[in-house]
Amino acid sequence: MNANIMNRSELIYHTIAIISLVIVIILLWNFTSDGSYVEGKINSDVITEETVSTIYGQLYRMIPTFCGVILFSIVISFYLEEWLQQTSWQYQIIERHIAILARVPSLVVGILAVYFIFFHFQNITYYGLLLTVVLLVMPVTIQSTQKSIQTVDISVREAAYALGATRWRVVTDHVFPHTFSKILAVICTAISRILAIAAFLVASVWIYGSNSFSFPKSVILLITGALIVSVLSSLLD
C-alpha cells in the first residue's frame, strides 16, 4: 500500500476524533460555564437517606441493563476483530474513538455522571446511569477483549479455516474457548468498575446532602466488592 494514502487516512481519522472531542467539550461548556446554573440546582434539603435508597433501587433494576452493556461490548469486540477488515475505515474510526474513550480517567466520567444525574436532570434517571456505565465500561471492555482476541494465534484460525470451518464456527469453537478466561477477567473488571461508580455516586450524594444523615455503610461494602472483583480479575487473566 502507498505510504501517502496511509498517512492521509490516518489524518482523516485523527481529525474526526478531535472534532468529536471538541463537540463534547463545547456541549459541556455550555452546560456548566454558568456557575450559578449549578449552584441554583444544588438543593441539599431534598437529599436525604431516601435519595440513597432511590439510587440503590435504580441500580438494582438496571442490573440486566448492565449485563447487556457488558455482553454488547464483547460482541462488538468479536465483530471488530473477526468480521471487520482491520484496514477498513469503519474499523479505524471505531478503533480510534474507543482508544480515546478508554483513556479518559474514570474519575472524569464519575464527576460528569454526578453532574448530569443530580444537577442537570435532577434525578437519578435510567438514561443518565446508562450513559455513565456505557462510557465507563464499554471502551475498556472492548479494548481488552480485542487484545485477548488478538492473542489467538493466526495459525489456529488458519488451521480451522483450512478445514473448511465457517467464520462463525471458527469464532465459537476456537477463538472463544481460547479467550474464555481472559474474557471472564474482562467481565470482572467491568463489574468492579460498575461497583466503584455506584460507591462514588452514593458517596457524592452524601457529601452534597451536607452530612444531613449518617454516612451510608453500603459504600464501604461496594468498595470492598469492587476490590475483591478486581483481584479475581487479575487471577483470571
Binding site: V156, A162, L163, G164, A165, T166, R169, H174
Partner: peptide, 29 residues
C-alpha cells in the same frame, strides 16, 4: 477448503480433544 487437506509446518492443535480435532472437519461438513 474442504477439498484440500493442509498440514502446516508447526503443529497447530485446535483447543479440542484428539477425537474432536479429527472429527472437526467432517462435522463441519
Amino acid at each position: 477448503r474442504r477439498r484440500i487437506g493442509m498440514v502446516l509446518p508447526l503443529p497447530v492443535g485446535l483447543p479440542l480433544s484428539i477425537y474432536d480435532n479429527v472429527a472437526f472437519a467432517p462435522r463441519t461438513a
